[in-house]
Design a protein around this nucleic acid. Structure first.
Lengths: 345, 345
DNA sequence: AAGTTCTAGGAAAACGCTTACCTTGTGACC
DNA sequence: GGTCACAAGGTAAGCGTTTTCCTAGAACTT
C-alpha cells in the first residue's frame, strides 16, 4: 500500500491558484459574496486538478451546523423501519444531506446514549422513528435530551407517537385499525381475537383501541381475554397466536377472525395457525398491519393496513428542513388492503 | 420555543472548573497524559452540571479522523441489505462508532457522488455493500475514489465481490449454489431452470455458475435457454418466472425445479407460478438464496441458502477497525436450508 | 475634478478542540 | 545538599474552514 498521503486542503488550492484562502473558499464552497468569473474558474480548475475535497468537519466547526440528519430507530432489520429509512435516505440525498443512523434495539439506555452522540454531531435535525414506550424508564430523559437539542437550534421530528411537543409525522394507527374492523365485519367476521405487541407501546395501544372502536361502532365487543400480548416480532406473533389458540376453547364463542397488530407478527401467527393444524383463511381469518411488501407473497396473501412508509420517511426529512417555530403535525392516512387471508365468510 | 442557546464548550467547563482547557480536555475526553484524581473528578462534575457535550466535528478537525464508519449500500429497504446494516450498526455501536449511511439505488453516478461526500467526512472506514456491476460505467472511477481514500489513511471494506484490492468479506455464493444443486438433485430434481437478476452483477453470475458446477459434478447440465434474466427485485422474480414458464414448452424436458438467485425474487416467482395455475412444490420445486427471515413464513416454506448476514455486517466493522497493511479476505460460508418448497420427488 | 458609493480581493480572527512544548514543584539518588 | 528525573499543570500552536473587517481601486455622481 502506498505511503500515506496528506489530504489536499483549501490552503493548498489557494496557494496553487495564487489567491487567498478567503477567495478560494468563496469560489468553491459558495457564499453570499461574489467572486469574479475568471478567478472563480481558475480556482475551481485548480481544485479539480489537485483532487481537493472539502473537509466537512472543518466546515461544520466554522459554520456551526453540519449538513446531516441523524436518525434514531429501533431496528433497521425490521421492514417497517427499513422502509422508513429508505424514504429518509432518498429525500436526504436530494437535499444534499448526509444521514447518520443508529438503532436503539428498543433499549432506553441505548437510546439515550445514541442521542448524546447525535447531539455531539450538531446535525441539522434528529428524526426519531419508533413508538414511544410508556414503560421505558428513560422516556423522560429522552424527551429532555431532545428538548435540549431543540433549544440549541436543532429540529426534532418524531415519527408515529401521539401528541408531541416536536414536529410529528402522525401515522393514523387508530383510524386504520378502526376501518379494518369495519372491513372484517363486512366480510362476516363475528368473533374476534387480537394478538398484539406490548401495549405499553403507543402504536399497539392505538391499533387495539382503534380496532375496538371500529367493532363498537357496529355493536360488537372485544373481550379482554381475547387479546394476547407478546413480543413485537415475528416470533412473538407465533407465540402469541399459540397462546390465543390455547385460550380458544375457553372463549365464549368460536374465534373466527384475528387481528395481529403488525405484519411481521402476523406472519409468525400464520405459521402458528398452520402448526396447530388449522388453515389460515378457511378456519381463521387473519389480518396484519403495515402492509409490508411481502403481504402479497405469503399464502394466502395477507390482509393488512397500508402505511405509506417510504413517503413517511420523505416527509420526515421535509419537515426537518422546515424553519417554522411552531411544531408541525402531519397526519398520514392509512387504508385497508383486503386479501385472501380474510375471505368472505 | 425558547430563545436559542449557545452550546456549552470545553472552554466554559475549563473556566468554571478553574483549570486550563488542556487539562479539561485531558480529563474529559481522555488522553495519554494523566490528570490527578481530584482535578479530573472536579472537571467531570463541572462538565456534567453544565451539560457539556463534546463537539465531534471539532474533535475530528483536531485529531484528523472521525469516529465514524460510512456505509454505502444499494437499497436499505431490501432485507438483504438491512440485515447487513443491522450487523454493522450493532458492532459499530459496541465500538463507539457512528454510522453514516447512503443508498446508491444502484446508480453508478450516485454511488460516486456519495463516495465523494463520504470522503469529505474523513470516516475511519468506508464499507461498500452490494455487488459490483460489470456494466456499471462508473465502476473504474468508484475504485479510483476508494483507492484515493485508502491512500489518505482510510480503510475500505467491501462486502461480497470477487477479488479485491481492499479488505473483503467474501460471501461464498458459488459454493452455496453448488451445494444447493447437490441438495436439489438429492431431492429428485431432474430438469432445472434458473431465474436470475442481471448476470452482470457478480453475485448473480457466481450463483448461476456455482449452480451449474454443482449440477455438472453429478453429470447434469443446465441449458442456456433455461436461464432467464430479470430485475433483481421481487417484481423481477415474478416477470422472470412468467418468462420461464412461457419457455417451458419449448424446453426439451418438463421443468421440475427452479433456482431463483434471491429470496425476494423467489417470492415473486412463487406468486407467478400460482398465477399460472400451478402449485409450488407439487408442480415445480422452487429454491431461493439468502435465507431472509420470511422464507419460513411463506407457504410452502422456501428452500434457500443461508448467509449469516448480520454476522457479515459485524465482521465488516471488525475488519474496518483492523490496522494491518495487507488487505484481508474473510470467507463467509453459506449453507443450504431445505424446506417444503422443494419436496422429495 | 472632487466626492461618494460599490466592488472584489486579502489579512486575520474565530469556530471548539487536541497536543507539542514549556514550566514548576516534587521526590529519588548518591 | 545538589543533581536529576519525572509528574502534572499551563501556554499556545495548530487542525481546515468561514467570515468579519479592512483596503485599494473602479464606477458613479454632481
Amino acid at each position: 500500500m502506498a505511503a500515506q498521503q496528506r489530504q489536499v486542503t483549501l490552503t493548498d488550492v489557494a496557494r496553487a491558484a495564487g489567491v487567498s484562502t478567503a477567495t478560494a473558499s468563496r469560489a468553491i464552497n459558495g457564499s453570499s459574496r461574489r467572486v469574479s468569473e475568471d478567478i472563480a474558474a481558475r480556482v475551481k480548475r485548480t481544485a479539480e486538478e489537485l483532487g481537493y475535497l472539502p473537509n466537512l468537519s472543518a466546515q461544520t466547526v466554522a459554520k456551526g451546523a453540519s449538513p446531516t440528519v441523524a436518525v434514531l430507530l429501533s431496528d433497521i432489520a425490521d421492514p417497517y423501519f427499513s422502509a422508513i429509512a429508505s424514504g429518509i435516505m432518498a429525500r436526504a440525498s436530494e437535499a444534499a444531506l448526509m444521514v447518520t443512523m443508529a438503532a436503539s434495539e428498543r433499549s432506553g439506555a441505548r437510546e439515550l446514549q445514541m442521542l448524546r452522540t447525535f447531539r455531539s454531531q450538531h446535525p441539522r435535525a434528529i428524526i426519531v422513528a419508533g413508538s414511544r414506550d410508556e414503560e421505558n424508564a428513560h422516556s423522560q430523559e429522552v424527551t429532555a435530551a431532545l428538548r435540549a437539542y431543540a433549544e440549541t437550534g436543532g429540529r426534532v421530528v418524531v415519527i408515529s407517537q401521539g401528541p408531541s411537543p416536536f414536529d410529528l409525522v402522525d401515522i393514523q394507527n387508530h383510524d386504520g385499525a378502526r376501518k379494518l374492523a369495519h372491513a372484517l365485519l363486512d366480510r362476516g367476521g363475528a368473533n374476534f381475537g387480537v394478538v398484539s405487541g406490548r401495549v405499553t407501546l403507543h402504536t399497539n395501544a392505538d391499533r387495539i383501541n382503534g380496532f375496538r372502536t371500529g367493532l363498537a361502532e357496529r355493536g360488537h365487543t372485544l373481550a379482554d381475554d381475547a387479546i394476547v400480548e407478546a413480543e413485537f416480532t415475528r416470533d412473538g406473533g407465533y407465540v402469541g397466536m399459540q397462546e390465543l389458540l390455547a385460550r380458544r376453547e375457553d372463549l365464549g364463542a368460536p374465534l373466527d377472525t384475528v387481528f395481529v397488530t403488525s405484519d411481521m407478527m402476523a406472519f409468525g401467527a400464520a405459521t402458528a395457525i398452520r402448526d396447530h393444524g388449522l388453515s389460515v383463511g378457511t378456519d381463521i381469518s387473519l389480518a396484519g398491519f403495515d402492509n409490508v411488501g411481502l403481504t402479497q407473497d405469503v399464502t394466502p396473501a395477507m390482509t393488512s393496513v397500508e402505511i405509506p412508509l417510504h413517503e413517511v420517511g420523505r416527509s420526515a426529512v421535509r419537515m426537518a428542513l422546515g424553519s417554522g417555530t411552531e411544531p408541525v403535525h402531519l397526519a398520514v392516512q392509512t387504508h385497508v388492503v383486503l386479501r385472501a387471508s380474510t375471505p368472505q365468510r
